[in-house]
């Protein structure tokens, strides 16, 4: 199992929790981000994620390194899924272990914030009457579903 990876298959979060667990860890935080049906009153049918895979995996590893440098004694593992995801599917998993719980919570939240800043992954929302790349302000004409 690669600890920092872009995957195309469903994510099993337990693999990532197991990866970071060590005898010196007193806490593991396991965050899973899921596909949400409703965003600001608009219903999503499904999501399509795309990534610049080699760079995205490097940036996930960079985030892991930042965490281990910022919070002593932590270990992290992160995976993000791409392709078509349905409502409630896991899009991202972040596991962090540390000697104490506070650090594990903080470092885990840091990871998701950094993912949204620096990792080249893009999400497209597909609705019943259209679609849009998120992060791209130019809304497509309605009815342009593939």
């Amino acid at each position: 199992m690669k600890p920092f990876s872009i995957v195309t298959e469903p994510i099993n979060p337990q693999l990532y929790a197991d990866y970071v667990l060590r005898p010196e860890a007193g806490a593991v935080t396991l965050f899973t981000g899921h596909v949400r049906e409703w965003t600001k009153g608009v219903q999503t049918v499904f999501l399509a994620y795309e990534a610049y895979v080699p760079m995205a995996e490097k940036k996930l590893a960079q985030i892991g390194q930042e965490i281990e440098e910022q919070w002593e004694g932590t270990r992290a593992a992160i995976a993000h899924r791409i392709g078509e995801l349905q409502i409630s599917d896991i899009a991202v998993v972040i596991a962090v272990s540390s000697p104490h719980r506070k650090t594990a919570y903080e470092a885990n939240e840091y990871a998701i914030e950094r993912i949204k800043e620096i990792v080249p992954i893009w999400k497209k929302e597909i609705w019943n009457d259209g679609e849009q790349w998120i992060g791209d302000q130019k809304k497509k004409p309605e009815g342009e579903l593939r």
């Binding site: 981000g33 994620y49 990534a51 610049y52 080699p54 760079m55 995205a56 490097k58 993000h80 899009a91 991202v92 998701i112 993912i115 949204k116 800043e117 620096i118 990792v119 080249p120 992954i121 893009w122 999400k123 790349w133 998120i134 992060g135 791209d136």
Partner: peptide, 26 residues
């Protein structure tokens, strides 16, 4: 080559450039 670049960086033979629109992972 899979790292964020500056507008002033000079491209070399064989380089891989990527256009990165605002990211939206997570």
């Amino acid at each position: 080559n899979e790292e964020y670049a500056l507008q002033t960086d000079i491209l070399s033979e064989g380089d891989a450039v990527a256009l990165i629109p605002p990211v939206s992972g997570g």
